[in-house]
């Protein structure tokens, strides 16, 4: 099977410091691919260079559906079908939940050209469907300014989903949430995955990462130290030493 997203020898340097070092990876259609590692391992930096926000890779290739995207502008990358969320919850505080979500639908769907015209899907329908999927339809017309952490995280996901992406990059969607919110988010990721969307998930909450992901890549100091199914990662001695501290019981 051809990978949906492929990274080839990706480097990201800030001056002399390399946050990501010669990283290779492949993500296949329909899978949930987990990324874990200690703080500063380069996880979010990897999302940044894939999405182009706020910077691109220093060198290496990133192929999406077989096409190089590492030099494309971030808005173009989004329109190609790569949507992301951020570790620090971000939203448009002066817009409502619906408008926040609609932004993804309006600017993420380039439309299909037919009979000399560009046909765009209905942004309102897409936004409402995304809000329903994440369980925020009741807050449709509420201003996003005073949102709870849980709402902010779900709103970012809704905004990404409304663009009908092919690949969803979730940066710590569970961090900081309580037990029931964590369970709801795990269920949400499963629902998204069930709809056929490919998901890349960065998460420190190992219970979530190990139960949701089909494969996991461990990063440490910007390098890949392990990759494989959750059962293998949980027992890998290098991963245990660098990150887990002890073997994780699945």
């Amino acid at each position: 099977m051809e990978p949906l997203l492929k990274g080839v020898k990706i480097w990201k340097k800030f001056g002399e410091f390399a946050a990501v070092k010669e990283l290779d990876f492949e993500i296949f259609p329909g899978e949930v691919f987990g990324i874990a590692g200690p703080n500063g391992a380069g996880k979010s930096t990897l999302f940044n260079v894939i999405s182009g926000v706020p910077y691109s890779a220093s060198s290496g290739k990133i192929l999406f559906l077989g096409k190089e995207i590492q030099r494309l502008k971030p808005d173009r990358i989004f329109r190609l079908g790569i949507a992301r969320t951020f570790q620090i919850p971000t939203l448009f505080p002066t817009l409502t939940y619906f408008e926040n979500t609609k932004v993804g639908a309006v600017f993420g769907n380039p439309g299909v050209r037919a009979q000399g015209r560009i046909h765009k899907p209905d942004a309102t329908q897409l936004a409402d469907a995304a809000l329903r999927l994440v369980g925020l339809e009741a807050k449709r017309d509420v201003l996003a300014r005073d949102s709870s952490l849980f709402d902010m995280k779900r709103l970012m996901i809704a905004s990404a989903l409304s663009a009908k992406p092919k690949l969803l990059l979730l940066d710590e969607p569970i961090g900081g949430l309580n037990e029931s919110e964590t369970d709801e988010t795990i269920a949400l990721i499963r629902r998204i995955s069930k709809e056929g969307l490919t998901v890349v998930l960065i998460e420190h909450v190992m219970r979530a990462l190990l139960t949701v992901s089909q494969r996991i890549m461990m990063l440490h100091h910007g390098e890949k130290i392990a990759e494989g199914p959750p059962s293998q990662i949980a027992r890998d001695p290098i991963v245990v030493e660098a990150y887990l501290g002890q073997e994780y019981q699945l």
Partner: peptide, 19 residues
């Protein structure tokens, strides 16, 4: 809508397809 998103959070707006 694009104007407001850029004012509120430029990086987030760009990540949502806005040049």
């Amino acid at each position: 809508l694009a104007f407001v998103t850029l004012r509120d959070s430029q990086d987030y707006a760009v990540s949502r397809g806005i040049s």
